[in-house]
Simulated scan of single mutants.
Amino acid sequence: MPTPAELGFAMPAEWSPHERTWMAWPTEGYTLGEDPTDAYRAWSQVANTIARYEPVTMVVDPAARASATEWLDPAVTKVERPLNDAWMRDIGPTFLVNNGELAAADWIFNGWGAQSWAQWDKDAEIAGSVGELAGARRFASRLVNEGGGIHVDGEGTVLITETVQLDPGRNPEWTRQGVEAELSAFLGVRKVIWLPRGLTRDYGEFGTRGHVDIVAAFVRPGVVVVHTQPDPAHPDHEVGKENAALLRASTDARGRALEVVELPAPTVLTEADGEPVDYSYINHYLGNGFALLCGFDDPRDRQAAEILGTLLPGRKIEVVDARPIFERGGGIHCITQQQPAV
């Protein structure tokens, strides 16, 4: 059977025009947390903000119908499907386009490497459900992968980390060459840039083991923003230096040397439990005419907004307090998934 790339399909860049944004509503377990109000407020603020710019469809577990109705703007479309969790970037499909046709890459999802706390019997079906609702042609991959583990420039380049796609809990039998071949076949990319690791906190109990979308992201072809930690006391200080240096030494699929722009981390170093935070401005979301940034009530919020505003001219800069999302293991990019316009 031909691969998506052989048929001409490829994943567009996030800044390409969207048909809509897909999200999933917090239902139970770790993401809902001890205070569901924090989760409801954060997810709804993201959805309601995006809905001012483009259509939003929220997948809602039937058991969470009441809270979704209470918190979401009526402009947000709700569809009911069983859910374990609420990270649509990871459980949803990766959308592809080809000359006016929409397709969906359906990766295998196994709870971020079969984590002991994770449940994914319902979430493993969401990519197929969302693809069907979107009217997309489905292509099933053999790779265990999540949307937060990839970031493309729309011109043949993808960023990934060694600790996600080569994670023994995800793909124990796969090699670098095999991963690259599968990503090329499903995303239509020609160049894979491997970063060695993600942020330190992401390897804790509830982490993803190194998702790239909190570390580095393309903002336009040839230009990538990278998370840096200015404070040497934080364990991500060396991580940021290593990733920035590797990216500066890299070229994209068209042979261009990458322009690397550093986004300094917020000033806070630890949470109340003494653990290092992984607050990152990289985990933003681009949509039709806007950029939705993570805010942390931090002095560097404004600096990040100014840097991204310069890099993303013509887009309205919106900021949502992302601390409740990060406390649950991710950020704004992690709870959203774009469906490109065709």
Rank of each mutant, 00 (worst) to 15 (best):
V56S: 01
V79L: 11
A68V: 04
T69I: 02
D61Q: 08
P74F: 01
Q45R: 14
A63T: 09
A51Q: 13
E54R: 04
Q45N: 15
W71R: 09
Y53E: 00
R81S: 03
P62Y: 08
S67Q: 11
A42R: 13
T69D: 13
P62R: 08
N48Q: 11
T49L: 07
P62V: 01
M58R: 02
A51G: 10
P55S: 05
E70I: 01
M58W: 11
R52K: 14
K78W: 08
Q45Y: 12
L72Q: 10
R41P: 05
V56Q: 03
L72Y: 08
T37R: 15
L72P: 11
P55K: 04
P74I: 05
R65L: 07
A42E: 11
A47R: 09
V59A: 00
A66E: 14
T69G: 08
Y53L: 01
Y40R: 06
R41K: 14
S44A: 15
S67Y: 08
A42D: 12
T77P: 10
V60H: 05
I50V: 15
A75D: 13
D35Y: 10
D35N: 15
K78V: 13
R52S: 12
A68S: 09
K78L: 11
V60Y: 05
R65C: 10
P74H: 09
P36E: 04
M58L: 08
A63H: 12
S67R: 09
A39L: 06
V79K: 15
R81G: 01
T57G: 05
P74C: 03
N48V: 08
E34C: 00
E80F: 15
E70R: 15
P36V: 11
P55T: 01
D61L: 00
A75T: 10
R81F: 13
D73M: 00
V60S: 03
A39M: 00
R52I: 00
D73I: 00
R52Y: 09
R65D: 13
E80I: 02
D35K: 15
P74S: 04
A51C: 14
I50W: 10
A75H: 12
R41T: 11
V56D: 01
E80V: 05
T57P: 01
V79D: 06
A51M: 11
T49W: 10
R41W: 10
V59R: 04
E54A: 02
S44M: 07
E54G: 05
D38N: 12
E80M: 06
D35H: 14
T49F: 08
D61C: 02
T49V: 01
A64V: 06
A66C: 05
I50H: 09
Y40I: 02
A64K: 03
W71S: 07
V79Y: 11
D35R: 15
A39K: 03
A66P: 03
W43M: 02
T77C: 13
A75Y: 12
D35E: 12
I50C: 06
E70G: 03
T57K: 01
K78Q: 15
R81E: 00
A63Q: 14
Q45A: 15
V76N: 03
V56T: 01
K78F: 06
P36I: 10
A47Q: 08
A39C: 04
